[in-house]
Design a protein around this nucleic acid. Structure first.
Lengths: 206, 206
DNA sequence: GTCTATAAATGGATAGAC
DNA sequence: GTCTATCCATTTATAGAC
């Protein structure tokens, strides 16, 4: 959104002639264009959710026209699927290992959901897109592929799968209340107090 | 959605004359019509989220036309605000009191999020409508009004507000993973096992 | 390789008849 | 008190020019 719409895109530049000046300086590079669209999609879906953005918005952020999205990804739905894969790829959902897992995860979670943080992340993408059934299915498959595997490395013992997904549930819930809804106690409370409470929550799962 | 559009509504019945046969047998009752719309709205918003339903869908479920929604509620947004108030009014979010609060809430939560449950509830409404900023604000205010007060009665001591909202966060998270997304471990796992894990989670908060 | 222009559907909201 | 008919904005997706 605050992307490089380019220094050279004043309201009415008459598009001299020929194809895409392609804002960033890039001029006709299929791979780069595709990547720009994908990056813009991750940001937009995370901020506004699947139903909250149109392909036009994403295209504009990427500095191209809406048509190219269908050209490169086939449909909004398949663009979303790729964006979800990108968002869930880095293992940002867990921080630390072993004994420090609960504490580190709690600290990272509270920091990233701080009111002033403006942070993106897979949980926001999840929450904001959960309403759409197709988006929900795409995310379920992505979670099974990525997150389940990651947490499986850290957690072991009885009911590891349930505990892993409950860890995700706690994090998603905090993200919802604190970051998406912005309920009063979690927004105005002391971050240290909140971190401590979340840490003790997560400790019952590791 | 599959509601009674009336047994007598073949494609082209020319509406003999006069106003509303009003499917339910009701014929011209402002209060009843208003209530029918509100009930349909709660169900629809809970199932499909704020952005997922149109006023036309809701109107059809209520057996009226879309226009009446604006007549009685002014706009979709204000209809949503009233629907949220209805959804959050009963204190379904907590079950039991005192020492049994964690266990009863966990049991109720797992039961209501069972894959076959088809249960509605305020958490579904929250999750499915969270993406829309205006809907989010409306819900934040409703939570401050209803839920905060309810849980304030049960919880006391240090950081009661934070603990209360973390309880909501845990429940919302479980609802998201188990009911909305339907992740594998929480769907296929033993309900008793899940209940036990959730109970011990909530116990760290009461 | 990328654009403009437009099709086809759907959204919320309104005017006026009965 | 309720309906039909319509307006206007917005959506995804496509056709065809350059």
């Amino acid at each position: 959104m605050t992307e490089d719409a380019g220094p050279g895109t004043p309201p009415n530049r008459p598009r001299p002639r020929g194809p895409a000046p392609a804002p960033g300086g890039r001029r006709r590079d299929a791979a780069a264009t595709r990547q720009a669209i994908l990056d813009a999609a991750v940001a937009a879906f995370t901020r506004y959710g699947y139903d909250g953005v149109g392909v036009r918005d994403i295209a504009q952020s990427a500095g191209v026209t809406a048509m190219l999205i269908n050209r490169y990804f086939g449909s909004k739905e398949r663009l979303f699927a790729e964006a979800v894969d990108v968002a869930f790829a880095p293992r940002t959902v867990t921080a630390g290992t072993g004994a420090e897992l609960a504490g580190e995860t709690a600290r990272a979670l509270v920091a990233r959901t701080a009111p002033e943080a403006e942070e993106l992340g897979p949980f926001l993408l999840m929450l904001r897109s959960a309403a759409n059934p197709r988006a929900a299915q795409i995310m379920r498959e992505a979670i099974a592929r990525h997150v389940g595997r990651h947490l499986g490395e850290e957690l072991s013992g009885d009911a590891a799968g349930i505990r892993a997904e409950l860890m995700l549930a706690v994090q998603a819930g905090v993200w919802l209340m604190r970051s998406v809804l912005g309920t009063t106690a979690l927004v105005e409370g002391e971050p240290e107090e909140i971190t401590e409470r979340v840490r003790s929550l997560l400790r019952t799962l590791v």
